[in-house]
Design a protein around this nucleic acid. Structure first.
Lengths: 225, 225
DNA sequence: TTTTGGCAAGAGCAGTGCTCTCTTTTGTGG
DNA sequence: CCACAAAAGAGAGCACTGCTCTTGCCAAAA
C-alpha cells in the first residue's frame, strides 16, 4: 500500500470518528450541533476539525448524506410480503421504525432545513433511495394489474410526472407515479407529525394510527378517484 | 384610565413591537433568531428585551402562538364552496397559500422542534384551530350523507378516536374523524415537502400537484377502504 | 538526508444567550 | 406638588459559538 493511501486511510478514519461523535452529540443535544463540543470530546482543538470539514455546514451535510443512506438501506432491505398493500406497509413501517430510532437524524433530513443551507448535489442520490423503493413496488403492482392507472394527467404537471415515471419506474403510468409520490409525502408527514409532537395528548396508539393512514395511502395509490 | 393600565398598554405595545421586529428577522434570516440583533434594530440594549421576554425561547413561543393564530384565522375564513370536496380543497389551498407567504413561520410550527423546547399549554388552543375547521367540514359532510363511515375501529385507538370525535366533531363516526386527521397530516406533509425543498428539481407545477394530492385526501375521507 | 506538505494547537475576532448591577424614568399616594 | 417605589433601560461581564490566522511539529516524499 502506498504512502499516499496510508495518509488517506488515516484521514478517512479520523473523518469517520468525527462523524460518529457528532452523531452522538446530535442524538443527545439535538440539532444545534457544536463543532467545538465535538472537538472537545475527541480531545483535539476545534481548529483541527476544520482540517476535515470546511465548516459546520459541511459536517451537517455529511451527516445528512449518511442519514439518507441509512434510511435508504433500511427501506430497501425491508420490502417483504406478497401483495402490493403488504409490501407498501412493510416499507412504511420500516421507515417509521428507523425514524423512531433516529429522531434527530430524521429531523435533519425531513425537518425544517437550516437557514441558508443549500443541499449539495451529493445529497440527491442518497435522498431518493426510499422513493425509488416505493416506485419499484408500485411499478410491480402496476405490471401485475394490482393498481389501476386512472385518469391521465395533462399539462405541465403531466409532462413532469411522465419524466419522473420514466426515471423511477419505467413503463408505469405517470398518474400512478403521482399518487405514489403523494403517498410517500403522506408517509413522511405521518412520521414527522408523530416525531414532532403533533399527536401529543391526542393519540397514543401511534403504530395503529400510522398503519391506518398507510392503508389509506396504499388504497389511494391502487384505486384512483 | 388608571395608571396601571397605562403602564400595561405601553408594555403591550412594546411587546408587540419586539414581536414585529423578531418576525421580520425571522423572515429574512431564518430560524436562528438573534435576540441581540432584534434589540439592535429596536435601538435598545439586549438586556432590556429581557424585561419583556424571559428568554429567547419565550419569544419564540410567542411567535409560535401568533403563527398558529394567523394560520387558524386564515383557514377559518377560507371555507367556501358547497360540496365536501370543494370545501376541503378551499381550506387546503388557503393553508398552503399562507405557508408560502410565511415559510419561516410555517417551519416554526410544523418543522422540527427546537431541541429541548417544550410547547407550553398556551399553544394547544391556537394549534388546533385548523384541524377544528376540517373537523367541522367533515362533520357536515357526514351529516349530509356525503361521507361514508366505513368499518369501525376497535381497541385503544378506537377509544382515543371516539374521544377526539366527541371533542372536535360530536356525532361524527370516529373512523371518519381518523381519516380526517390523516388527511390533515397529509396536507401538512405536502406543504412541508414543498417548502422544505423535497420537490426541488422534480416537480415545478406545485399547485397542481398539491391539488391532486388533496383531491386524493378528500376521497380517502369520504370513501372508506 | 533534506525538504515539503499535511496536521494540530493556540490565540484571537465577532457574534450569541443570559445575568448582574447601576441608573433613569415614571406613575402614584401622601 | 413632591417624595417614593416600581418598572424600565443601559452597560459590563461570563461562558459559549463558528471560524481564521499564525506557529510549530512530524512524518512522508524526493
Amino acid at each position: 500500500m502506498t504512502a499516499a493511501s496510508i495518509r488517506a486511510r488515516v484521514r478517512a478514519e479520523m473523518t469517520d470518528e468525527i462523524k460518529a461523535v457528532a452523531r452522538r452529540h446530535l442524538a443527545t443535544d439535538g440539532a444545534n450541533l457544536s463543532l467545538r463540543a465535538v472537538a472537545r470530546d475527541l480531545g483535539m482543538a476545534s481548529s483541527a476539525v476544520y482540517r476535515y470539514f470546511a465548516s459546520r455546514d459541511e459536517l451537517l451535510t455529511a451527516m445528512i448524506i449518511d442519514a439518507y443512506d441509512a434510511l435508504g438501506a433500511t427501506a430497501e432491505a425491508s420490502v417483504s410480503g406478497s401483495g402490493f398493500t403488504d409490501r407498501f406497509l412493510s416499507v412504511g413501517h420500516s421507515v417509521r421504525d428507523w425514524a423512531l430510532a433516529h429522531p434527530h437524524e430524521w429531523a435533519l433530513i425531513y425537518g425544517s432545513p437550516v437557514p441558508g443551507y443549500q443541499a449539495p448535489r451529493d445529497t440527491v442520490a442518497p435522498a431518493i433511495r426510499v422513493i425509488l423503493v416505493i416506485g419499484r413496488i408500485v411499478g410491480d403492482a402496476s405490471a401485475a394489474g394490482e393498481a389501476a392507472a386512472g385518469e391521465p394527467i395533462t399539462g405541465k404537471l403531466g409532462d413532469e410526472l411522465a419524466y419522473v415515471a420514466e426515471q423511477a419506474a419505467p413503463g408505469t403510468p405517470p398518474q400512478l407515479v403521482a399518487r405514489a409520490i403523494g403517498a410517500w409525502i403522506h408517509l413522511c408527514g405521518a412520521v414527522s407529525a408523530e416525531l414532532f409532537g403533533q399527536l401529543n395528548n391526542t393519540i397514543d396508539a401511534r403504530r395503529e394510527f400510522f398503519e391506518l393512514q398507510m392503508r389509506g395511502a396504499a388504497a389511494t395509490i391502487s384505486r384512483p378517484v
